[in-house]
Design a protein around this nucleic acid. Sequence first.
DNA 1: ACCCTCCTGTCA
DNA 2: TGACAGGAGGGT
Length: 249
Amino acid sequence: MSGVDVLDPMLSHLDVGAVVGRRIGDIRRAGKRIIVELAHAEDERVGSYLVLHLRMTGRLRWVEAAEPSPGRVRLALDLDGPRLLFIDTRRLGTVSVHDDPAAARPTGVDALSGELDAELLGELIRGSPQPIKPWLMRQDRLAGIGNIYASEICHRAAIDPRRPAGRLDDARLRRLVDSVRSVLREAIDCCGTTFSDFQDSQGRIGSYAECLAVYGRVGETCRRAGCGGHVERIVQDQRSTFFCFRCQL
DNA sequence: ACCCTCCTGTCA
DNA sequence: TGACAGGAGGGT
């Protein structure tokens, strides 16, 4: 990393010295976090971790170094040639540096982890009286699912989002694991869900909005074959939940 | 479970 | 002008 511009005073806590001059190693995702591994030039074995969280409106964008920056750039990382911009209208996104890899990662099991099966999900969920939809958004238990996909997953699994998480039977548990995987997989293949802000680092718009079965579709006929119900909106933990009363039980 | 905060933009 | 928005952290 040849240079770092902290353009937003909200990010002034960032230790630029821990970042500049470091060689970039792996870049990976864990839950909703983007983790950039930084090696020290003097000792490649010692590293630190730059952690980005896009929250609601954050996005990354590759640009040529000479290109004028678009608005709302909060942070610019200069590589040797290209620049990586962190753009974020609502400024709720976060950037931090950690020495400890464990501290860089979310505590919950990644929702797309190969380890996640009905048995593990059952263990994570056991005893929780919390309704399943808000439970799915608990990053400390299962990392990576947000408000859109939590509703979509419950619909695909035909589970009432209000049902207590700890009391799902085996059939529901299996449908839930399958739905977690397939909804997230498809959404990633579609480059995410763009309502207004989101673009990937190449500037591509997500197309999963067209695939949404319930999210934001109040009053529409349920898309499940033969159901005929209608999508309703309720509020759980101050967040909108969309579901079909007819087929989600 | 509820309430609030952070921040900015859009829409009714 | 107020409600709401993809998130998360805090307090009660």
